[in-house]
Design a protein around this nucleic acid. Sequence first.
RNA 1: GGGUCCCUAGCUCAAUGGCAGAGCAACGGCCUUUUAAGCCGUGGGUUCUGGGUUCGAGUCCCAGGGGGCUCACCA
Length: 507
Amino acid sequence: MTESYDLFNPEQLTDQEQSRLAKLAGLRAAGIDPYPAQTTRTHAIDAARALYSEGADEQATVSVAGRLKRIRVMGKASFADIDDGTGQIQLLVRRDFLPDGWYNEVWKKLIDLGDFISVTGPLAVTKTGELSIEVHAIQFLSKTLKPMPDKWHGVRDEEVRYRRRYIDLLANEEVRELFRTRAAITRALREYLDNEGFLEVETPILQPIYGGAAAKPFVTHHNQLHQDLYLRISFELYLKRLIVGGFPAVYEIGRDFRNEGVSFKHNPEFTQLEFYEAYADYADVMRRTEQMVAYAAEKVTGSTTVTWQGKTIDFTPPWQRIPLRQAILDASDIDYAEFPDDESLYNEMKRLGIDAKPGTPWGKLVDVLLSKFVEPNLLQPTFLTDYPKDVSPLAKSAPHDPLQVERFEGFAAGMELCNAFSELNDPQDQLQRFVDENYRAAHGDDEAHPVDVDYIEALSYGMPPTGGFGMGIDRLTMLFTDRDTIREVILFPHLRSVKEDDGETAA
RNA sequence: GGGUCCCUAGCUCAAUGGCAGAGCAACGGCCUUUUAAGCCGUGGGUUCUGGGUUCGAGUCCCAGGGGGCUCACCA
């Protein structure tokens, strides 16, 4: 079956697109290659700007390239601004500086906003003090066939901004800046962990058994091996195998995939940082967490305090520490330790008018209390500590209380940021926890942890006491860049596919 | 999945149920120091799609598509 792509059929094009196609033909007719392989560029715009020397008789001559963002034609002289991603600079284009015909026939007739050009000439400062390039030669680099978004308002339509992020980026400089900041965040986290002796590793994304979190996975299939595989929901079990193997401290920054709802703080794929540190426990990890996040905040924003949605969030260590049980008691008046089974806790919640589905397992009820009463109010960075064992199948039991584990979660801005614990390294205990989870799965919990026999084998070879940690980078980026939705900090966030004519997409 | 709001020119946005408009962009002019340049003129619409109500629908009703918010879901 052949398809006809009449993307450039003049009948389908707007007047502006037709005009640009005509100019493209005009360039070719004039012997100008609209898409040459080489460029005359000698300097990035930021580098060219740095070459200007105040008061010198003669300024450096440079070639800079970039996208044409604005043009101001004033008869036989024009001003324009180009942007190459390192910065912008003004062009001073005068008829008398250019070769014959270039000003009237090429500059004024064949060049559009959005086109990429390279210009050559000396640096100069205009009457109004604007550093410019006095253009003596123009090279065409790439013809743009679509009109640019509004030069002042940019693109606001969120659907366009997320579906076709390149338009967002080319029109809205602050969006480019945001993603530079995002890169600076992961850079700072890597820097911190590298300096602390952690080894960066990469572990499988395609996993025969998923694990390390309570979440529904995406399933795929390896044709030749006739084997179903899961996209990882966490890195945890692989990173701990590396601790078994003898690395004292490892980390991975990468993508996790969870087949669950999409919201302002959930995307089906998201970026996670996990680290594991031998001979550490969850208290050590807590100190490291606040230290690491404060380090990143300082590196990226210049301060350990950030402003988020008009509120000040202070990441300076130490962060507040509250036992989970206490936090829930304070916020909801329920002491879950007094209601140690599904039914009694459910009934108590019902008595207080708290909505939950009948038959919800105890651990999930605790989570309902946490996410309803506690989490939204944790604006300042806070560690909730000492979680019920019931909801923590991979964490080590607390020595003083067999029903609790050495675990904490970090919150800020009303969102869960990270999750960490003293890792369970008793293989027989771990097996029993998996079996219990398996029981839950058989009774309808589709997020229960599957049994990973190979992982038990690994633990059986011996894993030292280990502290482990996981943090959502997207959410941290939201906090550091003052955004209130995860879509803003993911370059290509997940959106529903637009239905084609043949209606292939399911409703 | 439920509730709710939104979808108008390339972009940003207007339009009591009564001739579908503006700014930017485009096109034709004027203009050799502007920086959202300015001035004169011109063209540009499947008002998301399909039905319905009405003398008349961008506007009201129904169905569908996509998006936002929200609830549910999501340690």
